[in-house]
Amino acid sequence: MSLLNTPAGPAPVTDVILSVHHLTKRFEGLVANREIDFEIPRHAIVSMIGPNGAGKTTFFNQLTGIIEPTSGTIEFDGTSVIGMAPHEVAELGIARTYQNIRLFANMTVLANVMVGRHVRMKAQWYQAVLGLPHVAREEAAVQQRSLELLDLVGLPRRYADDLAKNLPYGHQRRLELARALASDPKLLLLDEPTAGMNPGETRQMTDLIARLRRELELTILLIEHDMKVVMGVSERITVLDYGERIAEGTPEEIRTNPRVIEAYLGKQATA
């Protein structure tokens, strides 16, 4: 929080794009998220870490409208997200990727990216049926833009017409990223973007994430297990354990935080 409480002065360069207050999610008896406070400054890369079952994915799912919080508030760019359907949240400008890659397997690579653009397209069904010229123009423009996005994430264009399920693993991750980027999101949520990658691929992905923020002026929130990635790319880190926020700070602060070490390595490590 200290980063955000900048004293009054010239207009704050880093305004807040997402602010979450007292967010709680209960499943029956289980508390997946308890009273979480969380903020992301615009154009920052923020990470959320924590052991398995700490409630990170539940947190993501509440941000994107997939599950509704039990209590608390989520405000994105001045709008409350609570009660919105996922597609409305997507339209607001939050896009995400998934821990276990979830592509539209039997669609082409290009079509996957173009679906990502859906919310920014205007063609209605009756316009498509009539084959109006502006539909064709929009279609061509989106196709062009989608191909450029493939370039951006480093997925060779020659794969554009292959079915998504036939892509090699690393390319599937890239495609998922391209699909998320296609909607011109303001906030990009990445759920373990380097899971299952070898060190070389992981480094490429880390570089890519940093580059995306720079070139597309994105705000990025990532869940990640790989500490090297987290430490290398994020400006702030939030640590969850048993559904609660146990620490928040710069990578350096987190690295030395005794509660974090305890959560990850057990009690004896701190002793």
């Binding site: 994107t64 409208g65 997939i66 359907a85 996922p86 597609h87 949240v89 997507a90 339209e91 896009a95 995400r96 998934y98 979830r102 592509l103 539209f104 397997a105 039997n106 669609m107 079509a111 679906v115 990502g116 859906h118 919310v119 699909r179 909607s183």
Partner: peptide
């Protein structure tokens, strides 16, 4: 098609 492939992801994609 997206809906056919994965309904919840299609919804989350917009």
């Amino acid at each position: 098609n997206a809906m056919r492939e994965d309904e919840s992801v299609a919804e989350a994609t917009g």
